[in-house]
C-alpha cells in the first residue's frame, strides 16, 4: 500500500467523474458521474486518514456515504419528475432557464 498511487487514482477518478458530469447528456449519467466524484473523495479521505493514523477520515467518509445515498434518492426522484413533466431525459433539453 502506498499513498501517492492511491491518491492519484482517486484524483483521476474524481476528474473522470467531473468529465462525465460536464459532458454527458443523459441525466442519470450525470448522477453516475457525481457518484464517481463522491466515491473518489471518500477514497482520498480514507487514504489520508490511514496515512495520518487517525480514524476521522473513515468517519467523514461514512457520513459522506450517507449523504450520497440521500442525494441519489432525491436526484433520481427529481429525474423521474423531469422525465414525466418535460418528457425528456437529456440535460440540455431541460433549458427553461435560458435567458
Amino acid at each position: 500500500m502506498s499513498l501517492y498511487p492511491t491518491l492519484w487514482a482517486a484524483f483521476l477518478m474524481f476528474s473522470l467523474g467531473l468529465f462525465g458530469v460536464l459532458s454527458r447528456r443523459h441525466l442519470v449519467a450525470i448522477i453516475m458521474g457525481i457518484e464517481l466524484m463522491f466515491n473518489a473523495s471518500n477514497l482520498a479521505l480514507v487514504t489520508i486518514g490511514w496515512a495520518y493514523g487517525v480514524i476521522t477520515g473513515q468517519i467523514i467518509a461514512l457520513f459522506a456515504i450517507a449523504i450520497t445515498v440521500s442525494e441519489v434518492a432525491v436526484g433520481l426522484a427529481l429525474f423521474l419528475l423531469v422525465e414525466r413533466v418535460r418528457k425528456t431525459v437529456y440535460a440540455d433539453e431541460t433549458n427553461l432557464m435560458k435567458g
Binding site: 460536464l22 450525470i30 440535460a91 440540455d92 431541460t94 433549458n95 435560458k98
Partner: peptide
C-alpha cells in the same frame, strides 16, 4: 445585456463551480 450568457444548460453553469 447580460442575459446572453445564460444558456439554460446545467453543465455550462458547472464551469463556474469548477
Amino acid at each position: 445585456q447580460l442575459r446572453e450568457i445564460q444558456t439554460g444548460r446545467i453543465q455550462d453553469y458547472l464551469y463556474g463551480i469548477i
